[in-house]
């Protein structure tokens, strides 16, 4: 009986969490444009989706931003974590404190602080809002995730390996690629996947830093909400959901993956 109650409760919470997802998947097959009426099963929104150049462009922007920002964040974050490991404890914890700011601060404050920076750059140096400002912001909030997922790997690493490589005549750069990088690679990879998803899912920071004319999926959806969301978005999100599912299975099967997952805000 208690076992049944436990199961029942878990299923109830699960239903609560998955109900909107089910709704979206069902609506993506609804031939009627209305959210309230079922017009019959159809693939029309999936077909239209691939002919909708506007949504395709937004999707491309979103994926491009996510990919580039994750790659750059991985590069900067990984080498930063390696360097931080050799710092004096005080400097290191000061830098870690700064690293925590974007993770703990409210997204809205991070968003407007970056927006203020870009507005000043626009005034003083003619900086233009657009894909570059989105990228800079995404890299900024992605680096901490990379650092946090690479750090445990570096701490576990044996420092003598690197020194031995140097003693045996390797240049520091050569030793970095041959000794350090292979050791911490799983951490880098899970940092990359995390950064990629964070970027894909972000709305608030993008909203404040995008300027007009450029949209990511999130900001596009937000703009649509008042007039009613185009059902092609349901189709797209169903497809994305399936891809993310596959992606997550990959993360979870990688060694050490999923360990350092700090949930997004």
């Amino acid at each position: 009986m208690i076992k049944f109650l436990k199961r029942f409760y878990a299923v109830l919470i699960l239903l609560f969490l998955y109900l909107p997802m089910i709704t979206l998947v069902v609506l993506s097959f609804n031939s009627s444009k209305s959210r309230a009426k079922w017009g019959g099963f159809s693939f029309i929104w999936y077909r239209n989706l691939f002919h909708d150049s506007e949504i395709m462009k937004v999707l491309l922007t979103t994926l491009l931003v996510a990919f580039v920002s994750a790659v750059v964040a991985c590069f900067i974050g990984t080498i930063a974590a390696i360097g931080m490991n050799k710092m004096k404890p005080f400097t290191r914890s000061a830098l870690m404190g700064v690293t925590n700011i974007p993770m703990l601060n409210a997204d809205i404050v991070t968003g407007i602080s970056l927006m203020l920076l870009f507005l000043i750059l626009k005034d003083k140096f003619g900086f233009r809002f657009g894909i570059v400002s989105i990228l800079l912001s995404h890299i900024t909030f992605n680096i901490p995730y990379v650092i946090l997922s690479v750090m445990p790997r570096i701490k576990k690493m044996n420092p003598s390996n690197y020194e031995a490589a140097l003693d045996l005549g390797a240049t520091p750069v050569y030793a970095f690629f041959k000794v350090i990088l292979p050791d911490i690679w799983p951490g880098v990879l899970s940092g990359f996947l995390m950064a990629f998803t964070m970027s894909l899912d972000d709305f608030i920071i993008t909203y404040f830093t995008k300027g007009s004319g450029v949209d990511t999926l999130s900001t596009k959806i937000y703009a649509m909400v008042k007039k009613g969301v185009n059902p092609e978005m349901y189709a797209l999100s169903t497809l994305i959901f399936v891809s993310v599912l596959i992606l997550l299975i990959l993360i979870n099967t990688l060694p050490s993956g999923g360990k350092s997952k700090k949930a997004e805000k």
Partner: peptide, 23 residues
């Protein structure tokens, strides 16, 4: 994993789905 999974679908769309459900 099952309980984290919903977090990876665009949260605007999920909230929008709740609008549809609760209207």
């Amino acid at each position: 994993f099952i309980f984290i999974l919903p977090m990876w679908m665009n949260f605007l769309l999920r909230t929008y789905a709740w609008m549809t459900l609760l209207e």
